[in-house]
Computed example of a mutant assay.
Amino acid sequence: MKATTALILLTIYLLIHVILGQIGTSPILIYFVFFTSPFLIIWTVLIILKDKRKNYPELSENQEWGYADRDDLTTDP
């Protein structure tokens, strides 16, 4: 699954949780959604971290951290 798809699904799930709480749905359903949300958040984080569709360059010896999306910040000083 793509990282963007996982983020969209998680956002919709969390919005549903807020909406269920606002409209006064059954507390059991709200608790179920609440207690399952940490697992879905962890699942989404793992999908994002494992997403290898874009190859990022390795950092050089003297670099501690670098930006991979801007060329002007990836050059060594």
Rank of each mutant, 00 (worst) to 15 (best):
P38L: 03
W65V: 08
P77I: 06
I47A: 00
V33F: 08
T75C: 08
K52Y: 04
N62L: 10
L14H: 03
E58P: 04
L10D: 01
S37Y: 00
A68I: 07
T11N: 12
K50I: 05
F39W: 08
E61T: 09
L14K: 02
M1W: 15
R53Y: 07
M1S: 08
T44Q: 00
A68D: 10
L46H: 08
P27W: 09
A3E: 02
W65K: 11
I48W: 02
L29E: 15
D76Y: 09
T11Q: 14
Y13K: 04
Y56K: 07
P27E: 08
V33S: 04
D72Y: 15
I47T: 02
I8S: 09
I23E: 02
P77A: 04
S26N: 13
T4E: 11
L9S: 10
W43A: 04
T4L: 13
I30C: 02
V33R: 01
T5Y: 10
T74M: 13
E58N: 06
Y56P: 03
I42Y: 14
N55A: 15
I28A: 12
L73S: 05
P57Y: 03
I41K: 02
I48G: 01
M1L: 10
I48P: 01
I41L: 09
E58R: 03
T25F: 13
D72P: 01
I12K: 15
S60L: 11
F39R: 03
T36E: 06
S26Q: 12
V18M: 11
Q63L: 05
K54F: 07
I23G: 03
K52V: 05
E64L: 13
I8A: 15
F39V: 11
T74C: 11
V45G: 07
R53S: 13
L46E: 05
S37H: 00
L29T: 14
D76V: 15
E61I: 05
I47D: 00
S37Q: 00
I28D: 13
N55I: 10
A6D: 02
A68Y: 11
L46M: 10
A68W: 14
K54A: 13
F39I: 12
R70D: 06
L29S: 12
K54M: 15
P38W: 02
K2M: 11
I16A: 08
S26A: 08
L14V: 05
T25S: 06
V45Y: 06
S26W: 09
K50Q: 11
I16G: 08
G24Y: 03
I30Y: 03
N62P: 05
V45T: 14
F35P: 00
S26K: 12
G66Q: 03
